[in-house]
Amino acid sequence: MKPFREQNYYELLDVRPNAEKEVLAKAYEAAKRAFAGDALASYSLFDPGERQALLARLAEAWRTLSDPALRVRYDEDVLGIRSSVGPPAEGAVPGPRPMAFSYADLPATGVTGSALRSRREAIGVPLQEIALNTRISIAYLQFIEEDHEKGLPHEAYLRGYLTQYARAIGLDPHTVADGYLRHLRILRSGKR
């Protein structure tokens, strides 16, 4: 969603904050190819200066995240995450496969607060952890899971929260945001 200068290292590499090192390595290789000077997908967008800046940011992202100590520091200082690295918990979501498309790992059921909570509980991510990682107030996260319409912020902010929440539980952010906002509109129109 953000141009590269505003993206954090994980966003730059298109990986989740809990991605393992092999996933990071693959993502870095793919990114270097995608933003090389002659790359089909990007040659027409970036001028040489910008391309250099982007490649330098990617290299910096890889240098930092591939070093466990630097990564822990980056996570804490920049993202405010305690420790995302380490062996994945039992039943944890695997990192994104290079060829994965959006929607790939969606639940078949609807995007409701309770469906999202079940998904989160199934993969064993505590709400506190998401609050910490995303810096979204835990109250809002609870309101999302409870479909508590009155407590939820304006749609413009809610969308951002939903995308971050979705990422944290390994779902496609846009599908979840779209689905949930639609769900909310239907709830609201039903009450009127």
């Binding site: 993206q7 990114a31 089909l40 967008l45 290079p98 060829m99």
Partner: peptide, 13 residues
């Protein structure tokens, strides 16, 4: 894989 790089390019640019 072009679809993935185009997706990434669109968000980065």
């Amino acid at each position: 894989a072009l679809g993935l790089s185009m997706r990434s390019s669109c968000s980065k640019y």
